[in-house]
Amino acid sequence: MSDVRGGAAQPTLVVEGLKTHFFTEAGVVKSVDGVDLSVSRGEILGLVGESGSGKSVTGFSILGLIDQPGRIVGGSVKLNGEELTTASPKRLRSLRGDRIAMIFQDPMMTLNPVLKIETQMIETLQAHIKIGHAEARARARDALGRVGIPSPEERLDSYPHQFSGGMRQRVAIAIALLHGPDLIIADEPTTALDVTIQAQILSEVQTLCRETGTALIWITHDLAIISGLADRVAVMYAGRIVETGAIAEVVSNPRHPYTYGLIGSVPSRNKRGQRLTQIPGMTPSFLSLPQGCAFAPRCPNADAKCLEMPELSPCPSAAHRARCFHPMPEGAEA
């Protein structure tokens, strides 16, 4: 980069206009269709959306791990200024696990059932740095200790099935943290866990990221989970970001009718006894997306104008933007 600025000013990850399409026999599935994101050092970004909104595909696109028949067809992903969509497979491999790590949704499925924890950790170290077995084992042990696994030395010789779900997710997190990555993408990592374990893991990951300055993208369908965790939030609907801003601002003052509906449908203590509102209709199929705004058929505010695609525009400021022609009035009670 010719433009040498302070490291703090440049976001760790900048995603612009990312498009990932799946070319299936039934048609082109535009799972991600023009997504912009950015996340800086030590910052936590929540990526929220329903199942099938394209949030996981966004995560995998950043890592360059899209399986056939999917393909990144447009946009750019820049990690520390380096373009990843055009990077060689070799370069991507060297970044994965080293600079960008990922934590998956189901801890029961992420660890290879037939390999010892030790093997799975040491191979991650040896994939990126020259390191002897004994030293690698010591680092693996320390990493397990750091995520709160008791007697890590013995646990290294265990197999995944000897751990509980929460412990397995800790192991996965320890693996993700091994190389002190610049960015961690966490794809609903607590969805499969007990609520109490969820809270523990959330706060631990938050602490670890703040300490190491790692940028974190936390993918979830649960706004409530990230409202206490994230700095900013991006809400996805049908492959696009529909609203983004500081978490407190978006939660207290949602402008996009979809976000508004999402927040309204979350049970909370001060809505006790009242009916939860629900968003009418269901997530549209990617094969038959409505023309213009994809949310229009379910939207209370929609009119003829919504047959065109609105831009993600300041609402009210550049820090809080929504993709809507008819945003909810400011301060509307959800």
Binding site: R93, G97, M102, F104, N112, E123, H128
Partner: peptide, 9 residues
């Protein structure tokens, strides 16, 4: 997928 995400060859 996780093995690939770890950057293994």
């Amino acid at each position: 997928k996780f093995a690939r995400a770890k950057g293994l060859s």
